[in-house]
C-alpha cells in the first residue's frame, strides 16, 4: 500500500473526474496534526481500493510488481545484452536478426518486450529511439523510461532535429555519420546496440557492461570510454 506522505502540491485541475471535489479541500481545518494526501494520491488510492475489492488486484502481487520495476528491472539488463553482443559475434547476429529470443537467452523477457528490434550503430549510422505517440519503451532491457523520454520537447525535437538533441545531451557526431530516428510503438520497441568503445580489447563481458549507459541504448548517448571507468581487475 502507499506509504504515508505529507501533502504535496499536486492539483487535480484539468482532470475530469474530481474537478468538482477540489472545493472540498478548502473545508479542511488548518490544524496540521492530521494526515493529508495529495489529490492525485487520493485518486490512486480510490482506484486501487476499488480494484482490490472487486478482485482485480491482489495487494501482495501489486507490491511485488512495484518492487520489480523499481529495483530489479533496469538498464543494467540492457547493458548485459550489449556486452554479450560485443564479445560474442554469434549472439550479436541473433540479436540483430530477432532480438526478443536473443534477449531471452540472458533471462530477460516480459511485458513490453515481446517485439524488440535491435538497431546497430556503425561509424556511418547512428540510431536514436523515440516514441512520438506516447512513451513506448523496451521495459525488460531498459526498465521504465526516463522523464525526458516522455517529454513533448524530446519527442518533437528527436524527429525534427536529432543532431540538435544529441548536442543537448553533450555530444556531437561526425558530419559524415547519418542519424536514423526510430519511432517505437505499442507493437515494436527499438533497442540501440552502440559501438564498442576503442581500447577495450580483451575486456570481459562484465567489464564491458560497465561502459554501457542507458542513454547509449536509446541513442541519446555513447558508451563510456575506458578511461571513464575504473577497471576492476579479476572480475569474471
Amino acid at each position: 500500500m502507499l506509504p504515508l506522505r505529507s501533502a504535496s502540491l499536486d492539483s487535480a485541475a484539468g482532470y475530469p473526474y474530481f474537478r468538482a471535489m477540489t472545493d472540498h479541500e478548502h473545508h479542511h481545518d488548518h490544524h496540521h496534526d492530521h494526515s493529508e494526501l495529495s489529490e492525485t494520491d487520493l485518486r490512486v488510492r480510490a482506484l486501487e481500493s476499488i480494484l482490490i475489492e472487486k478482485g482485480y488486484l491482489d495487494p501482495a502481487a501489486l507490491d511485488v510488481l512495484i518492487e520489480t520495476y523499481e529495483s530489479k528491472v533496469g538498464p543494467r539488463n540492457g547493458a548485459r545484452v550489449v556486452a554479450r553482443a560485443w564479445t560474442d559475434p554469434a549472439f550479436r547476429d541473433r540479436l540483430l536478426k530477432d532480438a526478443t529470443p536473443a534477449i531471452g537467452e540472458l533471462g530477460y523477457a516480459g511485458r513490453q518486450g515481446e517485439h524488440i528490434v535491435t538497431v546497430e550503430n556503425t561509424p556511418e549510422l547512428h540510431n536514436m529511439v523515440v516514441c512520438t505517440l506516447c512513451s513506448c519503451y523496451p521495459w525488460p532491457v531498459l526498465g521504465l523510461p526516463p522523464v525526458w523520454y516522455k517529454s513533448a520537447p524530446y519527442r518533437a525535437k528527436a524527429v525534427k532535429d536529432p543532431r540538435g538533441v544529441l548536442r543537448d545531451f553533450g555530444f556531437e557526431l561526425p558530419a559524415t555519420t547519418k542519424i536514423r530516428v526510430w519511432d517505437s510503438t505499442a507493437e515494436v520497441r527499438y533497442f540501440v546496440l552502440p559501438m564498442r568503445p576503442e581500447g577495450t580489447e580483451g575486456w570481459s563481458e562484465d567489464e564491458l557492461a560497465e561502459l554501457v549507459t542507458r542513454d547509449s541504448m536509446i541513442g541519446t548517448g555513447l558508451p563510456k570510454r575506458p578511461d571513464q571507468v575504473q577497471r576492476s581487475e579479476g572480475t569474471s
Binding site: 504515508l4 505529507s6 496540521h32 492530521h34 494526515s35 494526501l37 487520493l42 488510492r45 480510490a46 482506484l47
Partner: peptide, 23 residues
C-alpha cells in the same frame, strides 16, 4: 471513484500525522 476518493480523504483527516492511513 469520487466516493472512494472522498473516503480516503476522510481517512487521512482522522489519521494522526505519521500513522499509516487505512480505509
Amino acid at each position: 471513484l469520487a466516493r472512494y476518493r472522498e473516503a480516503w480523504d476522510h481517512a487521512a483527516d482522522r489519521t494522526p500525522h505519521g500513522k499509516p492511513i487505512e480505509l
